[in-house]
Amino acid sequence: MKKVSFSRYGGPDVLHLVDAEEPRPGPGEVRIAVRAAGVNPVDWRIREGQFRKERRAEHEPSELPSGIGQDASGVVDEVGEGVEGVKAGDHVFGRGTDAYAESAVLWAWARMPEGLTFEEAAGYPSVVETALRIVREVGIQPGQTLLVSGASGGVGSAVLQIARERGITVIGTAGAANQDYLRDLGALPTTYGEGWVERVRQLGHVDAALDLAGSGVIRELVELTGDPQKVITIGDLSAADLGVRFSGVSGDKVAALAQAADLISQKKLHIPVEKTYTLAEAAAAHADSQAGHTRGRRVIVI
């Protein structure tokens, strides 16, 4: 089979399409014929070795060369020992290992909701789990106002819709081209850049804040909320210097996927796919993801 691999840390150019043996599912796992794989910022952070530098071993490959990618959708073709409730031929989406490939093993999954395409499904697993987790961790309550910095990407799109469903007001920052997109998702939008803090203040009092882009705004978010404990980041590894929590790997992934499937089925959650790529274009997908300005998701289609 074909898979994307890297043998050293570095820029997008370290990614290469290689021949590899098909993986086998272990106990509690399933293997899928991958139809699409989600492109996440954590993927290129791993490729650059950022977590290795921060000693966050849970994100790092055990050895190089290594595959890459953690979100995928596809068709089950092998079931590991002890797995129940799913069989060969079922369409699933979930979290796994080395997802940028023609075949991958998932350790958490859910059945794809009716009407969802493989491309759309691959964009949900990590972002919805992350969105549910950080909204919970930041402690925002119905009736309060949440500031989301970098709100137009996949996680931001999910946060805005989850918050709206829970009666939470959201102020979202994004580029000028994505203001209407944020507004359509129920947020009070404003642009980032010079003067953004004052623009946020004009929109209302901020009870808690989420940093999704890691664009160096932690100090301002603490200033706006008045308390570093009311700020969570998923993008700034230096946030602890200001007393702000970095939210990494935690939570029940299976439960989060089930909740995502339920929200999608009820038409309460939709994350658009902005652009698709082939396996051979994985480096371009990473470069585009790192450039930012995403509206929704980027997905590799097999």
Rank of each mutant, 00 (worst) to 15 (best):
G67A: 10
E48A: 11
E48I: 00
E102G: 12
R133A: 04
L185G: 10
E81F: 10
Y100P: 09
N178W: 01
R201Y: 04
Y277G: 06
A101H: 11
A131P: 14
Q144H: 12
D180L: 09
G67Y: 14
S73L: 10
V92P: 12
R95C: 09
P189M: 05
P125S: 04
D241Q: 13
Y100R: 08
W109G: 06
E81Y: 04
G204T: 06
Q259A: 13
D90I: 00
R201A: 07
Y9V: 04
S5A: 13
I134E: 12
Q141I: 01
H16P: 00
V244G: 13
G186F: 01
T276Q: 05
V254S: 07
G80T: 08
I302F: 10
V4S: 06
A88E: 14
L212N: 12
V4P: 02
K230C: 06
G143Q: 04
S238R: 11
S157V: 02
G74I: 03
T169P: 06
M1V: 14
R45F: 04
K267F: 05
E120F: 03
L210A: 11
T190C: 15
G96K: 04
V79S: 08
D180C: 06
V39T: 01
E223N: 03
W107G: 11
M1I: 13
T233V: 09
